[in-house]
Design a protein around this nucleic acid. Structure first.
Lengths: 157, 157
DNA sequence: TATTGTTATACTCTATAACTATA
DNA sequence: TATAGTTATAGAGTATAACAATA
């Protein structure tokens, strides 16, 4: 069994990288990120601001810090992102009732429609991207990914 | 069946986001990225340079452009990354034999040991991160992710 | 003292356009 | 003309440290 020369086409071109789950997750994530841009990027909506809109819609009046925590976004970075969403007319800041340091976030009507339209288009795009997945495979995929997410280590902060 | 009030703990805190595969891939990818830092970040090695080392090791003498293409890295960005790896003593540039415009990349002995050590530690870390996955589940995961990677759209460039 | 939000700043990755030298 | 590499630059996400206001 000699001359096992492998043509460096497709797989083995990556070397040890091909055996690492982290690398494949990174590339797959990038595929969805590009698709996100094709789906709603024309409206200037990006992944992170969209995620923030979704979290606020799910918990109206949520505090800025809690919203960031749900998404793994640091407080310092939330400030700029919320500023952007407020200036775009998607989010309103309100004073938190019980804590005068805190800020409660709510969606504006514009923010709600932006979220709804983007969600519809994103769902279409994801369905297309996963067109050759059976429902079972798709559930399996999400289930496996969720178990990885659960392994997240809390940041030192 | 009333009073189906859902406590906003864990899942529903994300809203529509929770139903999008792209979001979960992004977070899972981030979990592995953080773990990469814990595994080999102390040595100053990052995900992208590590990936480049792996590709060069798999195809010694590969051209700079081909290495970037295998990893989805644009030519302009490869320049800086290769500069960094050369200055770190991990990579040597050689003239391509048949094309005087091109550059052939090879690993130095130091680059090889860096790659080997990092790979060993990364494999350990991935095994730990995926400790509660059966071998079948792990194969299933990689298989599903690869099918997503295959959906990548070529950049306009 | 601890927490919420803020400012300033730096690093990494990615993207585009214009340039050179070779082909 | 087209391609391989380069330079310059900008955008986006993330990270840390220091600060003010409030708890």
């Amino acid at each position: 069994m000699q001359d096992a020369e492998v043509e460096p086409g497709r797989h083995d071109a990556l070397g040890v990288l091909d055996g690492l789950v982290g690398y494949h997750l990174r590339r797959a994530s990038s595929v969805f990120a590009s698709d996100f841009g094709r789906a709603v990027g024309g409206d200037g909506l990006r992944q992170v601001p969209f995620a923030i809109l979704s979290v606020i819609a799910a918990s109206p009046g949520i505090r800025q810090g809690a919203a960031g925590e749900a998404l793994g976004i640091k407080r310092a970075n939330m400030v700029v992102l919320i500023n952007e969403l407020v200036e775009a007319g998607h989010v309103d800041r309100r004073a938190a009732e019980d804590d005068r340091r805190a800020i409660a976030l709510v969606l504006t009507p514009k923010g709600r429609t932006t979220l709804e339209n983007a969600t519809a288009r994103l769902t279409e795009h994801e369905d297309e991207l996963l067109a050759d997945f059976t429902a079972g495979e798709r559930d399996m995929l999400i289930g496996l990914i969720r178990r990885i997410e659960a392994r997240e280590q809390p940041p030192a902060d």
